[in-house]
Design a protein around this nucleic acid. Sequence first.
DNA 1: GTATTCTGG
DNA 2: TTCTACCAGAATACG
Length: 534
Amino acid sequence: MIDFFKDSLAGQVDDQQALAVGVALQKDLLLLTGGPGTGKTRTIVTMLAAHLSLPGVRRTMDALAAALLDYAPIGIESLIGERGKDQKSLSDLPVEAVADYAVEDADITLQMATKLATKLDETGQARLFYEEECPLIPVLVDMEFEGIRMDVDSLSSLSSYIQEQIGGARGRVFELAGEEFDIDSPRQVGHMLFEKLQLDPNARRTAKTGQYQTTEQVLQRLAARHEIVERILYYRTCTKLQSVYLDQLPNTRFEKTGRVHTQYEQAVIATGRLQSHNPNLQTIPIRTELGRRIREAFVPRDQNHLILAADYSQVELRIAAELSNDESLIETFRRGEDVHATTAMKVYGVDADGVTAEMRRKAKVVNFGIIYGISAFGLADRLNIPRAEGADLIDGYLNSYPGIREYMDRTIAFAHEHGFVETMTGRRRYLRNINSANGTTRRSEERNAINSPIQGSGADLIKLAMIRISRELHERGMMTKMLLQVHDELVFDLHRDEEREAPEMIEQAMQTALPFKVPIVVETGIGENWLEAH
DNA sequence: GTATTCTGG
DNA sequence: TTCTACCAGAATACG
């Protein structure tokens, strides 16, 4: 959003000013926006409309004009020259020279808007556009504008500690290797582990360049054979944290506010999710003890606030239950049972007391795999079990939840017939390779067909919740601010006076944003930082 | 610029 | 027989 306005204003403003202009423009734009049949002016935000109805076309005026109007607008190069250091700026030219170009821009945009509005109606995505995507714009602008406060001191003390850890791990790796090499180079790591130390005569190679694979998954399996492996893994964990989250992240803090203002893209991801960048706050570590500590640096804006995190519990599995209407899976959620343990009971044919931790772990992997349209091989690979056992697990799963098998068959058949699939709100994903003669390509597209309605409905659910939460916060004159969205989680600056009201309202909005027969569970947490709020 | 790897949901 | 789980951003190595 910021980039868009900064570009439009030809570098004449800084980020803060661009943000302010963006807020003002977007809000005016939306005042003009009415739903279908309301009789109000329908302002079409062409980029968003194009993302929904022409997702395969690049969202530039030239590409869209070619696709929608079969027309090639005046090229900007004819005015300011080719890209490069000699390229002029529009502001260098007399107004007369720019007039035709500028007028045509407005004309073409209006013509495209009219066509796009028709397309949205035709594809059944008008409500999605007017009632979900458009109202979300000012909500995202507000979140970008607010930002989240970052405590750089806590990051720098963590950085010193990790720097020591890196030195220690590095020394131990060289000691065990008997020589120095570049641990940052996957090729040299592969050479050390598989040529010099001969840790696995059947080591896998990468598809493109034939190097030895040294991914975490590969290394985990070798960890028991040689101490060097776990040291390399630890070295990688530490260098990753250092380079991405300790060296770079503090620089993204906006000095005037002391906060980090991520940018959200609404029209990029095919399934309908948001994308976060500059910095990406949707990939802040949580899975490892050391990594989690990064989250301690995300703190409330001042002493009157706390961090509130609200996240959907197993939302994609619940959506799979809803879409498939599988009685057994729905019943599991209605009873409030542990879905992974229940799945283990079913696929292993044991009672509740018979479920071991290992069974539950495997059942959990199967539950996730099903959402992605997994194959027996893929499951076997991930669980490090024989392929036949993987096949048995999937068979057992689909027999326990027959509705899921029907959902998969029905969805793939629909995709083959129509060339797209859709979410609960009618958001479409077009699958141009669904009828490919290449089996690998086709099967990959069939997995997309299975996964997209699930992932995309999750995106719709939280987007609609965000719109309602934002409206409630404003209407009630509350001081709590929504700050971040991480796919199934929302993060807030919670005002201390609203410690009861806000979480209750937010939970309610998240649970009821779309109608479900399956219970939707939201977990909230409050703390002095993002880690504590979990 | 592409490949590999790691971070998240 | 082959190739394998969905959606991403970003840092680093290497040619």
